[in-house]
Amino acid sequence: MSIGKKLLGKEQSKYEDDLILVNRAIGGDTKAFEQIVKQYKPMMAKVTIGMVGNREDAEDIGQEAFIRFYRSLHQYKGDASLGTYLTRIAINLSLNELKRRKSNLQVSLETKHESGYSDRRSFQKRDNSELVQEALSHLETKYRSVVVLRLMQGFSTKETAKILKIPSGTVLSRLARGQDRLRQIVKSLESLTPVGGQTIEKSNTLNIEINHD
């Protein structure tokens, strides 16, 4: 059996296992639903934290996503994998949260300065992963959702398109632009170099220009 077929078999078996769990949950078996929550918690965490930036809000969204799924269990017909289905709910809730926050179009790094991000010690402590997460929070929502789903969560271009209900071509163009913007943001964040106990900014502010495609 080829690796591709083996993988397909694995996916198929996962899909069937998920359907069994969903059917048991519909029948009132809360243990089955708990198993679904346990299985998809890491995925939900990655997507929501990637989208909204902080764990507290992400947990609220994750909880709400699972509850909404529970309420509409009977509506899940298995057209999409459970992961895709749950991610769609989580992304929609995250987008609502971001809309609610009415995030600023121009983010001044000086504001971050005041909130402690530019503190010398915190800069030294920050690793690549933290830097990337910080950069993500500066990225415009439409690019962020594509980057989170495709590059953080590892969905394929097709799956990302399906979740966001946009054409695959749009996913590719947003991904390219998103990566380009993210690269620039990371550079700007890295340019805040700690020198002699004080953080010297090579560029005074990190101006995020929003490109509309």
């Binding site: 809360t30 639903f33 708990e34 929550v37 346990k38 918690k41 890491p42 939900m44 965490a45 990655k46 934290i49 990637g50 764990r55 992400a58 947990e59 994750g62 909880q63 699972f66 509850i67 529970y70 309420r71 690549n128 992963s129 830097l131 990337v132 997460q133 980057v147 590059l151 953080m152 590892g154 990566q179 993210l182 690269r183 990371v186």
Partner: peptide, 27 residues
């Protein structure tokens, strides 16, 4: 950048499942 993005580790706090299940039981 792609490597760093795929390596990002994110998880909810301990007891998340219980919080969800309690909310569901309550419902």
């Amino acid at each position: 950048l792609r490597e760093n993005l795929s390596a990002v580790k994110a998880d909810f706090s301990f007891g998340f499942e219980q919080k969800v299940m309690n909310a569901i039981r309550q419902e």
